[in-house]
Computed example of a mutant assay.
Amino acid sequence: MSAPSAAWPCPAPAGPEPGFVYRGRWALITGASMGIGEAFARALAARGMNVILCARSAGRLQSLAREIADAHGVQAHAVAADLARPGEAARAWREAAALGPIHLLVNNAGFGLRGRFEGLAADRQAEMVALNCTAVLELAHLALGEMRPRATGGVINVASIVAFQPVPLMATYAATKAFVLSLTESLAEENRGSGVRVLALCPGPTPSGFQAVAGTNVQQGQPGYLLPGQVVDAALRALDAGEVRVVPGAVNRAAAVLGRLLPLGVATRIARVINEKRG
Rank of each mutant, 00 (worst) to 15 (best):
L142H: 00
G153D: 12
P228E: 12
G100V: 02
Q222K: 04
S208E: 07
E95R: 08
Q125S: 11
V106S: 02
V136M: 14
A130Q: 11
R197A: 13
C133G: 02
N132F: 09
M170V: 14
L120V: 15
Q125M: 07
A175G: 06
L105D: 00
R116K: 14
G215M: 09
G112H: 01
E185Y: 01
R148K: 05
P207A: 15
V167I: 12
D123Y: 04
L227G: 15
Y225Q: 11
R114T: 11
A122M: 12
G193C: 07
M170C: 12
A97P: 11
T206N: 07
F111P: 05
M128L: 11
G100E: 15
V155R: 01
M128W: 11
N108T: 07
G224H: 10
A109W: 06
R116H: 08
A97H: 14
L104K: 04
F164V: 04
A214P: 12
L104S: 08
P205I: 11
Q211S: 06
V106D: 01
A151Y: 08
E189D: 15
R94Y: 00
A122N: 08
G221E: 04
S160R: 06
H103P: 06
F210A: 05
S182N: 15
Q211R: 06
T206R: 02
N157S: 08
R91I: 02
T172R: 04
M147Y: 01
L144G: 14
M147A: 04
V158M: 02
P207C: 00
L183G: 09
G100S: 13
A135N: 00
T152Y: 12
L187E: 00
L131N: 07
G215I: 09
C133S: 07
E118N: 08
A174D: 11
G204T: 05
F210G: 11
P223R: 05
V198H: 06
A212N: 07
A92V: 03
Y173I: 10
E95H: 07
T152R: 07
L226K: 15
L199V: 08
I156K: 02
P166N: 03
Q222H: 14
V167M: 02
C202Q: 06
V196G: 07
